[in-house]
Design a protein around this nucleic acid. Sequence first.
RNA 1: GCCGACGUAGCUCAAUGGCAGAGCAGCUGAUUUGUAAUCAGCAGGCUGGGGGUUCGAAUCCCUUCGUCGGCUCCA
Length: 635
Amino acid sequence: MQIKVKLDNGKEASYPEGTTCMDLYREKAAEGKNLTAVLVDGEECDLNAPLPEDSKVEFVDFESPVGAKVYRHSASHVLAHAVKRLYPQVKLGIGPAIENGVYYDFDFEEPISSDDLKAIEKEMKKIVKEKLPIKRREMSREEAIAFFEEKGETYKLELINEMPEDEVISCYEQGDFIDLCTGPHLPHTGMVKAFKLTSLAGAYWRGDENNPMLQRIYGTAFPNKDQLNEYLAMLEEAKKRDHRKLGRDLDLFSLHEEGPGFPFLHNNGNVIWQELTDFWRQEHRRAGYEEIKTPLILNRSLWEQSGHWDHFRENMYFTNIDEQDYAVKPMNCPGAMLVFRSKMHSYRDLPRRIAEMGIVHRHELSGTLQGLLRVRSFTQDDAHIFMLPSQVEQEVGGVIDLMDRFYSIFGFTYRVELSTMPEKAMGTKDMWDKATSLLERVLQSRDISYRLNEGDGAFYGPKIDFHLEDCMGRSWQCGTIQLDFQMPEKFDLTYIGEDGEKHRPVVIHRVIYGAMERLLALLIEHYGGRFPVWLAPVQASVIPVTDRTHDYGRQVYEKLKSFDFRVELDDRNEKVGYKIREAQVKKVPYMLVVGDKESESGEVAVRHRDQGDLGAEELDAFIEKLQAEIEEKRI
RNA sequence: GCCGACGUAGCUCAAUGGCAGAGCAGCUGAUUUGUAAUCAGCAGGCUGGGGGUUCGAAUCCCUUCGUCGGCUCCA
């Protein structure tokens, strides 16, 4: 009997019944293709499984996401195998492929240290050399339980016990190593060509802090040495862009033992900050926002009223004034509620868009602090929009437009997520459903694709989050739009409707930059310290060639200053090359070299940090161009 | 908070139980310089803090603070 199979090149072929994926795989591999997996009818397929009749077969290599996953998953088994050989008593956790690599969680009898990774890597190389065939083995539930019980693999037993009754329990075997795994895998261990163990970390079993902490070994794997080295070089390159390093080198900010998580902004960083907030104010005025400022410390009773006392207390700082309890604000909303409530509103007053650059303090766990990306005190570009229920869709849409306006100025790409009702939530399920579907409707009407994040909403309402991607492909939550039917109730907010009766307004909380500190970190890394001219702490450095041209250099410097450019005069007794190098290292966008020629002609010799020497130009012409570049916020 | 690693001059790093050092940055002087580093000299330290072991500690041990990589959490 023959079976018919449709291949990925569109051709149909027939094979004897019982032909496996492996047979086809061998046939393809013999053609010199570097395959890692086979997809049957779009599903990852075990290589030893016989092909079903009329199936569609595709072959994938490392370049496809599925191929990379299979490849790296096999690498994770090689890792576990090596660890098991070196530490026979170790208990296995899980070991999936992740973006750019793999990890595997282990419960060691005695904790290992990162020095031990070398020996493990060496053992992995041996296993690769042995070219052990990787075979799938299916077991009955009883068989599997008995097997892993005998091996003392308590974590695997936990996984098996939670599998649905009818699930096929499959294991993969290579040499003397067997692991519970759905697969599929590479045909043999010799195919795992280039890998490196990168770090050792702690990780709670199944991500739950109440569970024991396992040791997680991270690594990465590629089909060849070149690709591995390229990846490692990319990591090195990213390190150079690290905002903590650039923050120090460019004198933007600092962090001190005296205030962990409380960043100090230096003049250079503050210049960028001010530009960002100036731009923010301008755009918000245009978009019809007012701006307020509310106190940092407010009485406990306010936090009880807002619900923060019940829902956010672990993250708050407290103090005592005149024998009364006070809290440092962790959010700006209660302050904004008080401002709104301080006068009567007609429906004609709404929507009221009230913005605040609000400084908030949150007690984050010490282990989570990270430069400016994760801090304990930060400034939110907050705003609360108070509106009629009928205005919600339009207002949410307006905020989305504003988000896009800001992010595109910086050249960021972003991803949208919709977060729904969490466990610790205020309000009824019905209100939440209503609010959530409303947000969904706005996103859908604008054709914005989004990811659903079940149970991740704020305690007072569902939210739309905007995640910006940084240069390393990590994403950070910045903008968020949170719908709130709770706060208006808690604070008994009202407006007088057309009917002369009191009604309840709806509130949205939103930030666009998110946290100024995080945004600054992101911008530093995004631009690698080469800020666009509108943001650059120093926009131009005037470099006289000799003492003879110091006076002319000063004239140029003064003129540029009179146009409000941020400019420096480098009249130190140094060679031109030295001054240029220094300006380049500080990533100053423009260097203006002035020597005898320029001082006679009234020109400046313009050098751009990226384009190099641009030649001499009339000073007025340069000023005009610089103004335009700043005005347009050119990237 | 938890797991692992680390903490030496402003920065990057040496010194592994026996006198704490280099490069860059800084300061002083010479040099008058044309598109990424001129030369010479000087200064810079309670080796994160506290305790211990030792004749002797940057080095070994304990503790505490901080930092880094993760986990959990989040703007």
